[in-house]
Design a protein around this nucleic acid. Structure first.
Length: 488
RNA sequence: GGUCGCGUGGCCGAGCGGUUAGGCAGAGGUCUGCAAAACCUUGUACAGCAGUUCAAAUCUGCUCGCGACCUCCA
């Protein structure tokens, strides 16, 4: 099947036909987490969205190199280019080495990503592992005349850059407007221009994380790591760069400027930005203090949560919203998704029980095309999900004998559901049996037989007792025309 | 203040010029010993006002409300 994938490009503010630079290879870079604290759900949404994008590109047959960095150095605390970096500050707090903090939260991040069933990136480079590359890049930018050294710190010269390139193009802003609206901050005497940002920052003696450089001991600025690592692993120009929308105005704008200044070419063909997660209409963020940790969401151990939600129900909840729309969290919405997800999983299981008929009343090809059309339209997962629920209705109707499916149809549906639900949306059936399934199946079969006999004798006291006892164990009995089935 | 975006039925959330989005909840029905599940039927939705058009949730203008970025954040 020929796919014509369209991607919304932040650069052009339009959906564009996706044509990779070197098909079938695709380079995908996503700004990863800063590992100085636990990831919260908002962070997860971005990574889950890009996991879906990565999965669909793979499904379409592209050979994708997916790079997602781990920021383990360089971020400053506060809005000034001085002071302790985040790791050092946290390290003092917890009496730990900075790299212990990094290790702790990197492992935690990977655990959460695994719970959400995300595929690991091809490469997960760290900022501290690429200090040399960042220094080299900084040196080249100075050489090309777009950066200057001031008291051991290297700044990018935005106004000079803007003479030749459009600095604010990613957010569609003119330099004059940006200059007008930049807040006046203290401690900026070292900078020539108000918009200038640091490529390399001079370290104070007490800094725990610092490295030697041509400009003295210091540490890299925040933006340079992504420029250095993306060009190292994906080339000076690559296909897709992604991240949260909050990175667009500053981080990505500066990344483009640095890469352009250093490599003399625009670094990225398609810029993709995922929208924010909100709670009661307010953006979930570290500074707002309204973020749940994924663990709290799974257990329900948080004042805003009525109960715990399975990771897959949460993932499904996210897939029911487009990645470029804000997603507002509420217990009600999450519970709706939880039920919908259970229904979807149940239907996939039902597929194994349908009796095929000779003729079909169902147009499989049309459904399949709709599914691909949805995904090809800038990864429109909510529309995909709507079509999958059409399939759910067909499956259940066929199981009731109200719709006819040929063996071929059933097979095609199984493949389709597997491809889209598991491979592309990245969902999995968390209740799909463990290693004792065969044993449990046998036991349940016996119990259901006993119950069927009791029902035949109209001994409803016994049949209800069995059903209630099983319900207490979390096993649900559903009586159908052809006998009872069970599930948990 | 500047720039950008959004306001869809009880809730979540697609659509963005003409035909049912979808999920959850609600109502009625079929099935059933009861229940659950499933299926069928059902919902006078598009912030307000004005305009363009044969036709507007969808385009234009204004008004109101909300949010994001401009400062560390996915």
């Amino acid at each position: 099947m020929t796919q014509q994938l369209h991607i919304y490009n932040t650069l052009s503010r339009e959906k564009e036909i996706f044509t990779p630079l070197n098909p079938p290879l695709v380079g995908l870079y996503v700004c990863g987490p800063t590992v100085y604290s636990d990831v919260h759900l908002g962070n997860c949404r971005t990574f889950i969205s890009f996991d879906m994008i990565y999965r669909y590109l793979l499904h379409c047959g592209y050979k994708v190199r997916y790079v997602r960095n781990i920021t383990d150095a360089g971020h400053l605390e506060g809005d000034r280019d001085e002071g302790d970096d985040k790791f050092t500050k946290k390290a003092k707090l917890e009496q730990l080495e900075p790299m212990e903090i990094v290790q702790k939260y990197t492992l935690g991040f990977r655990d959460v990503m695994r719970e959400f069933n995300t595929l690991p990136p091809s490469i997960e480079p760290t900022a501290t592992g690429h200090i040399c590359e960042q220094i080299e890049m900084t040196r080249k930018i100075i050489d090309s005349g777009y950066a200057y050294v001031s008291n051991g710190t290297v700044y990018f010269d935005v106004e000079n850059y803007n003479k030749k390139f459009a600095y604010g193009q990613l957010t569609n802003r003119k330099l004059e407007d940006l200059l007008e609206n930049t807040r006046e901050l203290d401690g900026q005497d070292e900078k020539k221009g108000r918009l200038d940002f640091a490529l390399w920052i001079k370290a104070k003696p007490e800094h725990l994380m610092q490295w030697p450089s041509p400009w003295g001991w210091g540490f890299p600025g925040w933006h340079i790591e992504c420029s250095a690592m993306s060009s190292k692993y994906l080339g000076n120009t690559f296909d897709i760069h992604g991240g949260g929308m909050d990175l667009q105005a500053t981080h990505h704008t500066n990344e483009i400027a640095q890469s352009q200044a250093c490599n003399h070419t625009a670094p990225v063909k398609y810029w993709m930005h995922t929208n924010m997660l909100t709670v009661n209409g307010v953006r979930m963020s570290k500074s707002a203090g309204n973020g749940f940790l994924p663990g709290e969401l799974f257990t329900g151990n948080h004042p805003l949560l009525e109960k715990g939600y399975e990771p897959m129900a949460v993932r499904f909840f996210m897939m029911q919203t487009h990645y470029r729309s804000t997603l507002d969290f509420s217990n009600e919405a999450l519970q709706a998704s939880e039920k919908g997800f259970a229904r979807l999983m149940a239907a996939i299981k039902t597929l194994d029980k349908i009796k095929p008929t000779a003729a079909s009343t169902f147009d499989f090809k049309a459904l399949q095309q709709k599914c691909y059309d949805a995904m090809n339209d800038d990864f429109n997962t909510p529309v995909l999900v709507a079509h999958l629920f059409d399939a759910v209705r067909v499956i259940n109707s066929a199981n009731d004998g109200k719709e006819n499916l040929t063996a071929q149809d059933i097979d095609s549906l199984k493949t389709l559901m597997h491809h889209f639900v598991f491979d592309v949306l990245g969902l999995k059936d968390e209740n799909a049996g463990g290693q004792n399934t065969a044993l449990l199946d046998g036991v349940m079969k016996m119990i259901l037989e006993i119950r069927a006999e009791a029902k035949a004798k109209k001994d409803f006291a016994t049949s209800d007792k069995l059903r209630d006892a099983l319900a207490a164990l979390g096993i649900t009995i559903k009586d159908g025309k052809d006998g009872a089935v069970w599930g948990n």
